[in-house]
Design a protein around this nucleic acid. Sequence first.
DNA 1: TCCTTTTCTGTCTTTCTTTGACCTATGTGT
DNA 2: ACACATAGGTCAAAGAAAGACAGAAAAGGA
Lengths: 156, 156
Amino acid sequence: MRLSDTIEAFIKEMMGEEQQEVEIKRNELAEFFNCAPSQINYVLATRFTPDHGYVTSSQRGGGGYIRIVQVRRSAQDHLSYLLNERIGNGIDAQSAQILCRQLAESGVVSLADAQLMAAAVSPGAFSVPMPEQVKNALRAKILRAMLLSIAQRRGE
Amino acid sequence: MRLSDTIEAFIKEMMGEEQQEVEIKRNELAEFFNCAPSQINYVLATRFTPDHGYVTSSQRGGGGYIRIVQVRRSAQDHLSYLLNERIGNGIDAQSAQILCRQLAESGVVSLADAQLMAAAVSPGAFSVPMPEQVKNALRAKILRAMLLSIAQRRGE
DNA sequence: TCCTTTTCTGTCTTTCTTTGACCTATGTGT
DNA sequence: ACACATAGGTCAAAGAAAGACAGAAAAGGA
């Protein structure tokens, strides 16, 4: 298992069901896992971003810390956030994958739905020669169409 | 016996009766068989395709892997036909919609899946300026990816 | 034999992870 | 205020895989 995955799991473990918030000491954690302190930043940057459903803040200097807060939204809010704010006129493949995964993890859609959506906007599905910008625009439209389909299904 | 056949047999051996899913390390396997790593790709490309009833995915970088999932027997029958005959490397919007509907009506996929697929390849989702031919190719790839995703589902 | 298909290797590319060097902010004691 | 210690931040380079693809080698077939 990759170190980053281990650290990710460790942090998520710290953050129990009730406590949707956790505070860590970068250096301590790095010491504990025997890695460079910036490794912690890497984990945060790749696994605890707003797209992943987390917001982080920190304080430097003596007694410094990093606080990680998990944002919880209702299914409705989550969907409308994605539709109206997050997915604009374009979205890259990787972000799309993350958003799909997050939808499943937050319980907004089933894992099967999430995987289906992720497949539809995966790099493989888009492996046709055209400018990245056009791909992003199309991905956004397709993602939106699928999310609307789900939202509609919900309202019946 | 050819090396490729040996590797094929080895992988199928790993994937026992119950365990219809296996994860390999490309470099390790190549090392074990004393061959070029790309030989593994050759084996996968020629013997573990959807037509053969397998779907693969992978992760690059440190701690990377290749995962091979065996498609359910019942799903495999439809899959080859859909991928090769019905979809091919291009499909227009209307045919795609009809296909989705038929898949749901014949019970090959759930209604929810069909609706999601239909939404993904709907004219609305594709309302972006580009040649019809490219759209058809893309629609085919997207449908293909989604069908593979469905076929890949095992015991969840 | 000669041609075609299949198998195999090598090289270059892309992606993800890990480390390290240097930078900036904050707290504390003088 | 100033200096120093104690944090965390940034970024680039190195490392660790897997992917793509062209071309060599081997196997089959006519």
